[in-house]
């Protein structure tokens, strides 16, 4: 074998490495994905595992020391207590109520944006929807607190037009309103995308076949917008489910969420195991939600 051939065949290390990648495309892909994948496994999954394991520990009530013996006490406390059951139910019910309300509000708005408004108006509406997202979450919740408070803007306006005053500040109604407002853009955007994708001649075809507006909406528009609706609902539902700031700021008595209990047990009571046990609950709810969404075909069209 000639030495020239030998040199070419062996090449330098970089050349050999490139050749290796060329012969094994999967290896190249693997090395590309490895860092983010490692990050994902370490930060996401490991954290989840630690969380789940910690749920079976307990804590010394006085010194706050972790006791790493296995116990089901945390889960027993959660399952047998009316309080914690009520809080879990309240959280899920609020997430559902907010999702439904947002869907009802977002649908006509997104429809108007996607199918009726001209290009200029559409840009203006986009700005209108997205602008609040540029300001901080806290600023917006505090703004609502001022609007809904007893001597706030809402009652001032009601008084101005001669209507009776309402007392909905610091209540579940207030939370419902604030959540609905805060997460509305997350429903409008995917819904807009879905509605915008419906070919215009589907509307013509439906009308041509004798369907009036409501039938077209129910049989054509709604089913075709459903993936967007479900995508949006995943946002509104999970964002509400995991929130603990709005309940503190605008909630009244009996407004605590799962997140508040978790926060109270981690930050305040220093009972991380109990918090971990309770925190598996939204995880479970979300897992079920996503399974149902998948069954409904929400991911088929993504």
């Amino acid at each position: 074998m000639s030495s020239a051939h030998e040199t070419l065949r062996r090449g330098g290390v970089p050349r050999r490495f490139s050749g290796l990648l060329w012969r094994n495309p999967r290896l190249g892909l693997g090395s590309l994905l490895a860092p983010p994948l490692a990050w994902f496994i370490l930060i996401y999954l490991a954290a989840l595992v630690v969380l789940f394991v910690a749920a079976f520990w307990s804590v010394d009530p006085f010194t706050g020391e972790l006791d790493r013996t296995w116990t089901l006490d945390n889960f027993r406390a959660i399952l047998t207590s009316d309080t914690y059951r009520a809080i879990a139910l309240r959280t899920v019910a609020m997430a559902a109520a907010v999702t439904v309300t947002d869907a009802v509000l977002a649908f006509p708005f997104a429809y108007y944006m996607a199918r009726v408004a001209g290009p200029k108006l559409r840009v203006a509406l986009f700005a209108l929807v997205l602008l609040p997202l540029w300001s901080s979450y806290l600023a917006r919740v505090y703004a609502w607190r001022l609007i809904l408070s007893h001597d706030g803007v809402l009652n001032w306006a009601l008084k101005l037009v001669g209507l009776p005053q309402v007392d909905i500040g610091y209540s579940r109604w207030a939370m419902w309103i604030v959540f609905t407002y805060i997460w509305l853009p997350f429903m409008i955007m995917p819904l807009y995308a879905a509605l915008e994708r419906i070919p215009g001649n589907f509307f013509e075809a439906s009308g041509d076949l004798g369907a009036r507006g409501w039938r077209t909406t129910a049989k054509i528009v709604f089913p075709l917008a459903l993936p967007g609706l479900i995508a949006g609902s995943i946002f509104t539902f999970s964002l509400t489910l995991g929130d603990y700031i709005t309940p503190v700021l605008v909630g009244g008595p009996g407004s605590d969420f799962i997140g508040n209990v978790v926060y109270a047990n981690v930050g305040i009571a220093n009972n991380v195991p109990f918090a971990a046990a309770y925190a598996t609950l939204p995880l479970l709810v979300m897992a079920i939600y996503l399974l149902v969404a998948r069954r409904l075909g929400a991911f088929d069209m993504m």
Partner: peptide
Amino acid sequence: PFDRNVNTVFQDYALFPHMSVAENVAYG
């Protein structure tokens, strides 16, 4: 359109993708 005794066959078909063939045909 829905009050006209007229039907249309579209150039790009405009079939409803979420309905079966039979459901499409039964729509009107």
